[in-house]
Design a protein around this nucleic acid. Sequence first.
RNA 1: GACUUCUUAGCUCAGCUGGUUAGAGCAUCUCACUUUUAAUGAGAGGGUCCUGGGUUCGAGUCCCAGAGGGGUCACCA
Length: 579
Amino acid sequence: MRPSMYLYTMQLSEQERIRRDSLVELRKLGIDPYPAAAFDATHRSTELAASFKDGMEVTLAGRLMSRRIMGKASFAEMQDSEGTFQLYLNRDELCPGEDKTTYNVVFKKLLDRGDFIGVTGETFTTQTGEQSLLVKKLTVLSKSLKPLPAVKVDDAGNTHDAFADPELRYRMRYVDLVVNPHVRETFESRSRIIRTIRESFDQKGWLEVDTPVLQAIPGGAAARPFETHHNALDIPLYLRIANELYLKRLIVGGFEGVYEFSRNFRNEGMDRTHNPEFTVLELYVAYKDYHWMMETIETLIGDVCQSVHGKMQANLGGNEINFKPPYKRVTMRDAILEHTGVDIDGKDEAELRSACQSVGVDTDDSMGKGKLIDELFGEKCEHHYIQPTFIIDYPVEMSPLTKVHRDKPDYTERFELMINGTEVANAYSELNDPIVQRERFEEQLKLGERGDDEAMFIDQDFLRALEYGMPPTSGVGIGIDRLVMMLTNQTSIQEVLLFPQMRPEVFSAGPNLKALEEWGIPCEWTEHVAAAGFDSAATLAETSPASLREKMNGYRKKNKLSISALSLEDVESWYSSNH
RNA sequence: GACUUCUUAGCUCAGCUGGUUAGAGCAUCUCACUUUUAAUGAGAGGGUCCUGGGUUCGAGUCCCAGAGGGGUCACCA
């Protein structure tokens, strides 16, 4: 960890000390740097720019992002939730009377980049044609004590000194959002995508529901769950890896369509397409099959793209993707045949294993037929599907929750939507035969015994629900994070999650000043001894009195402390008081 | 989890085969400046070179260990 990220409060940078001093000065002037009262703006920046006329009376609130001070007049940039707006501050306009404190002291000396202010004034256009606000009243709304990264953008649109370190950006997303406008745009797009889907589903009369995140049996997918413990019941509980089985119970219960934006949790690796928690949209609609679902999904994806880009096309890492429906349908068998020359039709496990080896796909003994086919597709085919394509008709062994194909008994009615070489959606004609479902679960159990640690658990209550009868149903899961990545041209999932998972940051507990005092350091020295790095009795004990004296006198000189220098006797007396 | 690479001022980065007091731009501070826009001009301050060991007369630089990040791979969506 960078030491700058866990500085003790007394080890402030020069800029931070100056800002704290300004805070004190503001209070001396009778200005509350953190006022309680609401501040009502009449406009936001972009809205004002759109309706701009000279001579409008306007109040704005936002963050002061830059100042260009030229003696008795200044320009400043103010940033609000929509964008930035230029302020013009003229000493005599802001302070018409004798007292010029607001301009000369408050604005020029005590305000800093990052402070929240409110301004009231009159709009006008500068000589260079820039829409501006002539400020007549200035209100301090909140003082910022830490300097923001000094990002600058020049006339040509080039960014200088960008705040680009991923570690700092993800750990301090609040700073990232302030100084990197494109980051805010990405999350606005994310919100628009989710809103478009929700509005579309609501319009069709489907019900948005909430199902348990804490589950006793983590079902509905094949993945390692996070485990936790419920104290009152004294049982293990799992964070859901999927919500599928609960939504199907609701179809059993009589809802015709149900959907949920489900935060799922999987205890697996992290990389630029995987985060331990991620969002999947699950939708189940009764009396439908997977053909209907393909039409629904291609229409939906097209609409979502339209809402983000205003058209059906998007550029993704140099690939022009056309989201306009209809999308190509390719069977899994044809996909594998095309890209490997292997025909999986009618092959048994041994034949598939040797076929894998012949095309250079690694296998191991825990892999069943389904897993082998999955490997063939994942290794050799998946990345070829750049334009939206439905891969359909998956082998039975890969799909324990899916209905067998109406014409082809070795396959299921399942599709995955591939875009830019990545899976975006996964859908079935849902298996609703309770007896077959029980057999499928038992096959999964056998795979688990063979060492496949992702094989599914058996959910007896879910089977009971099916025994009461589930209508023919089609269901789909859409990886929302990946969909957002595609529609915002991001290559990392961390760029579409506001707070991606990171290893926790280590903050120092800070020095224990009391312990230093008890150790024998006089109180006027404790803070400085700690700041010099001797923040515990243990570190002091490891240092010789002579060396400590030398270090502290050097520290005193460097920081121009007004306390007198230490003699060796002083320091030795600290030490001897401990023995 | 494996491999690889990075960590120097508030921010973005230089720093050569180890060698005076570790540099630049922006930011900050002081002064000047009443329509600028990466404002400008003059001056100043600001550093645990990620941490801990080691080699050396001498380490930001070389070696070892550790922390955190990025990339690639594995697992997965």
